[in-house]
Simulated assay, not measured.
Amino acid sequence: MSEVLVTGAAGFIGSQLAYRLWQEGMKVILVDDFSYGAEDNLIFSDKDFREEICRRDIRDSAFMEALFAEHHFDYVYHIAGITPLPDCQNDPVEATDVNVRGTVILLDLVRRFGIKKMVFASTSAVYENNKDFPSVEERVEKPSLIYPSTKYTAEQFCKSFADAYGIPIVCLRFANVFGPHIDCLRTQPPVMGYIIRELFLGNRPVLHATGNQQRDFIYVDDLIDLALKVREANTFDTVNVSTGKTVTINEIYNMIAEYMGTNLKPKYAEVGHFWANYPELYEEPYPIATEIMEHEVLKYTCLSNKHAYKKYGWQPKTTLMEGIRHTVDFSIRVLKKSIIKEDMHG
């Protein structure tokens, strides 16, 4: 039986990846320190991972080395990381330590223990300064914000280990991922999680600028399909995980609102208030630059998925509306459960 390590396994993507690997008949070892993960993500209709997961930090070198020594991993899926952009911007030291040093710790263990392949979760945010679309894997204008900078740096370490030691490593650059288990409770959730939460609570969601910003969204099941296919890779590779199509935030809002049966209209706020929940980023003497905030809110995101199709025969299968229905249904169950917990604890 193949053994697979999944880091960040209590998160949105990591938990569902672990479940699919388990369904394939693999022995899955899960690691998460629950900085962002949630126990609810580990519960599936026919499997409960809560008692199996290792509640540890990937930067705990002694623990991770003991884990690699105990198991004979065929594959390592490194999904763990600090992903909310404002959290990374607010604490760049921690973000760099987790996203970069944590990755290097794993890369070194992969090298020393002779793991067959490693798959690293990167992000489309590395393209934030690109001007040619759709974005292709070979062209990256170096990013400005902390989160994509840490991911791009980690990618360079992956390339370094692959070049120096011949380790097959695949970096997957995720577009905007959505689906069941999307985080809708944190301070600054992904846009779909945020819209669903606010509409569920009867609030008018706040969208920024005009809401006509265009994004490339990928459904989590389609992403996992590709994450499994890239095990075929025998050399280093970087692969976009995307639909190659764009949709506006207003269109997303309208689709969610229609499915939830609400006539609530969004409010629109100035670009500069996008990270208003993190006031320290706007404080003197060096507040975050207005032009950086404007660019983050207004940027156009569209990734080419031609490489994924040509090399791995992968294409996304889930329609946007189908994915939204699944996302809303699951998120509402999470929100109801959260409210019950709050009521129980006063």
Results as ranks from 00 to 15, higher is better:
R56S: 06
A62F: 12
M64E: 02
K116P: 05
G211P: 06
W275A: 04
K265H: 04
M192K: 06
R333E: 12
Q213R: 05
E24I: 01
D33K: 15
G25N: 03
T96W: 14
T103N: 04
K306W: 03
L223A: 09
N263D: 07
M344Y: 14
D74G: 08
T301F: 02
P143Y: 06
N203V: 06
I43V: 14
P168C: 07
M321W: 11
Y152T: 00
P168V: 10
S144F: 07
I252D: 08
G323D: 12
N263H: 11
L320K: 08
P92D: 10
D163E: 06
I218D: 00
L85W: 03
I58H: 02
H181G: 02
S122F: 04
I13K: 15
R55D: 01
Q23V: 08
V191K: 06
P189C: 01
I169G: 13
H307V: 14
Q188W: 11
T327A: 09
V4C: 07
T235N: 03
N176D: 08
N263C: 04
T150G: 07
R325L: 09
E39Y: 15
A80Y: 02
T187P: 05
Y300G: 01
M26P: 01
F63D: 02
Y253R: 04
P266I: 10
V93N: 09
G14Q: 13
M260K: 06
P168S: 09
F120I: 10
N240I: 09
Y268P: 00
V4I: 13
K245P: 02
I332K: 09
Y286F: 15
E52T: 07
N90K: 15
D57I: 06
D46M: 05
I43F: 08
H307C: 09
E138W: 07
V220F: 13
S122K: 10
Y147M: 03
L199I: 10
M1P: 08
E198C: 07
G211E: 05
T235C: 04
H208E: 01
E258N: 14
Y36A: 10
G25L: 08
A121M: 10
F68I: 03
A38E: 13
E51M: 08
D97F: 14
K116A: 12
Q315G: 01
V328N: 03
Y309A: 07
N305Q: 12
V230H: 10
V140A: 04
I182C: 10
R186W: 11
H326T: 15
T83Q: 11
P190R: 03
M26I: 03
E137H: 14
N240S: 11
L109A: 10
V206M: 00
Y278A: 12
E65F: 08
I252K: 01
R101N: 08
C184H: 04
K47T: 09
W22H: 13
L264T: 11
Y127L: 02
T243G: 04
Y75L: 12
R20M: 13
L223I: 06
A164Q: 06
Y300K: 01
K131M: 05
